[in-house]
Design a protein around this nucleic acid. Structure first.
Lengths: 119, 119
DNA sequence: CCGTTAGTTCTGAATTACCGAACTATGGGA
DNA sequence: TCCCATAGTTCGGTAATTCAGAACTAACGG
């Protein structure tokens, strides 16, 4: 596997972040990573709410989040470890991530954010 | 012309807002409406930066912003008047719009936000 | 009634997203 | 060492979106 691409923080663009998080599934994945600080595997959250996400789609979702500069991924043994680049993004775009995650969380109509492992 | 559709504020979804603003052109249009409080015509901002946007695309952009719940549009005579639904959206998703607009504004690489009529 | 300006809809081409299937990479045994 | 299981990526075909030119509609002013 070739090493994963992560943009430098100064290359991170707001439109890429908004695009990445405009998908409720990706937003739910990112919210969970932010909450947990670190998520150990894609498969660990292969089900969001009650909807099953195929692993090829999941892989793409992680790639989009990674290339938008939202997460950092590294392989540890056989599985992937993902962590949010919260501090960096927060420094560059203050308040953005919190506002977005809170917006999703406060939206009652969005069941994709209900993750079983949430509490 | 049939009357324009505007979603009730409680029907406004975060993913629709993020999707609408994930396009730099639309974000620039929205930022200008927010700054000015009210923009009188589509054609008034038919050029963003130095790029010319065809009016059919412009019409679509306004439609996307409108259906995302970000702006309210009404016909006044021959032209369209657009205003930001800032207070409503702010009450529902606190800090979201400011964070997004500030993110674009602080992104030096984003020339779409440079609007000639800005100041 | 005609022309002009402002904006919308239609339409086809190009782009992007989705997801099943095949593939690659890593670690753990026998 | 070889093989298997697990974790994730890439490929390929189809579906859904987006883009922008052209034609259309709406409103006002002679």
């Amino acid at each position: 596997m070739r090493s994963l691409f992560h943009p430098a923080i100064e290359d991170v663009r707001p439109d890429a972040i908004l695009h990445a998080l405009s998908d409720p599934n990706r937003a739910a994945i990112f919210a969970q990573i932010m909450r947990a600080g670190c998520v150990d595997a894609c498969s660990a959250l292969a089900t969001l709410g009650d909807r099953v996400i195929p692993k090829s789609s999941l892989s793409t979702h992680f790639k989009v989040l990674r290339e938008a500069g939202l997460i950092r991924s590294a392989r540890h043994g056989v599985e992937m470890r993902n962590e949010a680049r919260f501090a960096e993004v927060e420094a560059r775009f203050p308040g953005l991530l919190d506002a977005i995650v809170n917006a999703y969380a406060s939206d009652a109509g969005c069941d994709a954010m209900r993750v079983p492992a949430a509490e």
